[in-house]
Computed example of a mutant assay.
Amino acid sequence: MDRQKWLEWLSKETEVPFEGWDFSYVGRTGRLQEAPLSWNYASLVTRKLPKITTLLDMGTGGGEFLSLLGPLPRQTYATEGYQPNVAVARNRLEPLGITVVEADGEDTLPFPDETFDLIINRHESFDPHELYRIAKSGATFLTQQVGGENDVLLNRLLGAAIPQDYLHWRADYAVRQLEEAGFVIAQSREETVPSRFYDIGAVVYYLRAIPWQIPDFAPEVYADGLWQMHQQIEKDGYIDIPSHRFLIEAVRR
């Protein structure tokens, strides 16, 4: 395949629909595989469910993660700030008895003081003081966050600018914020593990799904870098991109 036909074929990956927070198009086929962390977020959440009566899932996306947990308490709520995902989340979660509220993680949340026994947050922003307000005394905030150095190798390989606004976003920074709001930290862990891409089309699909990483991304704009990555994948069979994650479990005094 010559380069022009290759680029035309690659552009078709940008036309594949992406909804909610569902990467199954490249995940279920194994075209993109994430190395395991030393913790499993779903298991950590599941262990706490029998002990609670109220739950909030912040940044539920399309409700994909929350819908797989259970049994959930009768009073379970979810927030989602990205408007196109709100309808997706409601369609998935409301038949399960879960109320979905349109709200961003850093918004003032529409819940009374001391409402929740457990607040979970997987890759969503948060306001520590707002969390403290809506958490009951003794409640847990359990979050897995995407660190500021996540996927920056993609930017370097493609010659794209590296987002500067979140490079500081690490476990120690988030811990300080939560402690200043009044939380006690039960645990904090941080790791960088590889995400393995087995073809360049999976890279294109992934970047289109996370537009904040390279805001002006399009195959024709970054054709040279994509071609070089494609050649590396053809040679090695894959390319590894470091994923930056951290986990914090905080308890309200």
Rank of each mutant, 00 (worst) to 15 (best):
Arg253Trp: 15
Glu220Met: 14
Arg92Gln: 04
Gln228His: 15
Ala89Asn: 13
Gly148Pro: 09
Ala103Trp: 00
Leu56Arg: 00
Trp6Tyr: 03
Ile248Phe: 07
Glu34Gln: 14
Pro112Asn: 11
Arg133Ala: 02
Gln4Asn: 10
Gln4Ser: 11
Pro219Leu: 02
Val100Gln: 04
Asp2Val: 10
Arg133Pro: 01
Tyr205Glu: 01
Glu179Trp: 03
Glu64His: 13
Phe18Trp: 09
Arg253Gln: 13
Leu118Cys: 08
Phe197Lys: 05
Ile239Phe: 06
Arg90Asn: 12
Asp151Phe: 07
Arg208Pro: 01
Leu32Val: 05
Asp236Val: 10
Gly81His: 05
Val184Trp: 13
Gly27Arg: 15
Leu109Arg: 00
Ala42Trp: 02
Tyr198Leu: 12
Ala103Cys: 12
Leu118Thr: 02
Pro163Asn: 04
Arg90Asp: 10
Arg122Ala: 07
Pro219Asp: 07
Ala186Gln: 11
Phe141Pro: 05
Trp21Phe: 11
Lys136Val: 05
Pro163Cys: 03
Val184Arg: 10
Gly70Thr: 06
His129Met: 09
Val88Glu: 04
Leu44Ala: 09
Tyr198Ser: 08
Leu44Tyr: 10
Ala250Leu: 03
Met1Asp: 09
Leu118Ala: 06
Leu44Cys: 11
Arg253Glu: 12
Ala186Leu: 14
Gly159Thr: 07
Val251Trp: 05
Asn85Ala: 11
Ser243Ala: 14
Val184Ser: 14
Ala223Met: 13
Ile241Thr: 03
Ala218Ser: 14
Val193Glu: 04
Gly182Thr: 02
Ala42Val: 13
Arg92Lys: 14
Gln177Ala: 11
Glu180Val: 13
Leu247Gly: 05
Glu149Gly: 02
Phe217Pro: 11
Leu154Arg: 00
Phe126Gln: 04
Val88His: 07
Trp39Gly: 01
Ala87Leu: 12
Ala171Glu: 09
Trp21Asp: 08
Val204Asn: 01
Thr53Glu: 15
Val26Cys: 06
Ser11Gln: 03
Gln33Asn: 10
Ala223Lys: 12
Tyr25Phe: 15
Arg28Leu: 13
Ser195Tyr: 05
Gly148His: 04
Ala223Cys: 13
Leu178Ser: 07
Trp212Pro: 02
Thr140Glu: 03
Phe111Cys: 08
Gln232Met: 14
Ser188Ile: 07
Ala35Asp: 10
Glu15Tyr: 01
Lys5Met: 12
Ile52Ser: 09
Pro95His: 11
Ala42Asn: 11
Leu154Cys: 00
Leu44Pro: 07
Val146Arg: 06
Gly30Leu: 06
Leu56Gln: 04
Pro71Cys: 13
Val193Thr: 08
Asp172Leu: 10
Ile185Phe: 01
Tyr238Cys: 09
Tyr41Pro: 08
Leu247His: 06
Glu130His: 01
Arg189Gly: 00
Leu55Thr: 02
Val88Gly: 01
Ile134Arg: 02
Glu179Ala: 12
Phe197Met: 11
Val146Ser: 03
Gln231Ala: 15
Leu142Gly: 00
Gln4Asp: 11
Ala135Phe: 03
Lys12His: 01
Glu249Phe: 06
Tyr166Val: 15
Asp172Trp: 13
Ser137His: 10
Arg90Leu: 08
Gln187Asp: 14
Asp216Gly: 14
Tyr166Trp: 14
Pro17Lys: 03
